[in-house]
Design a protein around this nucleic acid. Sequence first.
DNA 1: TCTGGGGTCCTAGGACCC
DNA 2: TCTGGGGTCCTAGGACCC
Length: 423
Amino acid sequence: MTTTIALVDGNNFYVSCERVFNPALECRPVVVLSNNDGCVVSRSNEAKALGIRMGVPFFEIRSFIKSHGLTWLSSNYALYGDMSARMMALLGEFAPRQEIYSIDECFLDFTGTPGKVRDHGRSIRRRVRQYLGITTCTGIGTSKTLAKLANHVAKTHRQYQGVFDWEQLSLLEQEALMDTLDVGEIWGIGRRLSPQLKAMSIHTVLDMKRANATLMRKRFSVLLQRTVAELNGESCMNLDDVAEPKSQILASRSFGRPVTALQELREAASSHIIRAAERLRSQHSSCSQVTVFMHTNRFRNNDPQYNPAILVPLTVATDDTRRLIAAAMSGLESIYRTGFRYKKIGVMLTGLQPVHAVQDDLFSTVEQPRATRLMSTMDRINRIYGMNTATFASAGIDQPWRMQTAQKSPRYTTSWNELPQAR
DNA sequence: TCTGGGGTCCTAGGACCC
DNA sequence: TCTGGGGTCCTAGGACCC
């Protein structure tokens, strides 16, 4: 049976979430910034029309605030995460199988379902708009790659009103449209591969569709071979509707200002371990390796640069925050050097395995049941009373190194104290 | 002055084993 | 003088995604 895949996503997702609770943002140029108020990560259509590109550093567009009334917001992941969960639950009702691909998009598998999938796309658009106040676009195709591309068409070609299915065109029309799309629009072809393909005279999606798949594999990798097949309607990528546990967990942040003191680095690394370990336990894994890495500011050419990383193996895999902090601290101390202005520190947990499969150490002195109870009690307290209600002193109290978030909106949907007020 | 964070997959090459 | 071949496992690095 031919597969039928839809890719649904929320338009300008972070900005749209903000607008739901603050209608004064409608019809104006609005951007949401990354952590630390660093780069633009979401733009309203009005902001796009000003020529503000995705990912630009905020300081480059500050002048638009005065000249064009640009509104900017720090990112509010508590809000976007909660809105995402509501949207995904709603979308999941439309198809038998759903793969949540990112915070604002999912694949829906309509293979074998009756009716025109385009009609589903339209009801999705109505329903999500009505229930959540967010506008969606839907792309439909016989493979994930074609669905992604169709979504791009739905967004950029007004006449399709946010829903586009390759099937609504004849083969000739499909190829004519593909010939107008840049090869870089294809899922999996980014800024490095795209020039290499163009050097081989593959400029458009149509060129890529007609490319020699075996040659693609030889020149690049099996990934591009698959891409060619998928563009030809042959579905090679399965829809993963059961989320696998993560195979690595990473927590890192840039500092709000340059950091030089070991003590501040220790606090920051501890606080990252605390977050990472919570995620580790929430997927019922333990980890056998902790990596600590640091960066100086790569944009400051005159500063001496130092980007060390160290992997600390654990003799017994664990999910105990205290042991993970201890491992991170020993790693940090061995790579720390004075004389550098550090910009960022991060930790990575790898060697993940199901917690029940952990091989104990013959000479282990850790009282595992007590540790497990302690950790799950802390997790429960923090779930009920809010993040960091119970935490570890090693993360510090004042945390002067913390990132900047100068314009964060309230957590309208996840905090009793910050519910929207009736006016 | 000011430049994000969290992931995945694939490949090449080294270590190691017999 | 002259130092194999085949396999597996692991890691680092590069590419991609949002």
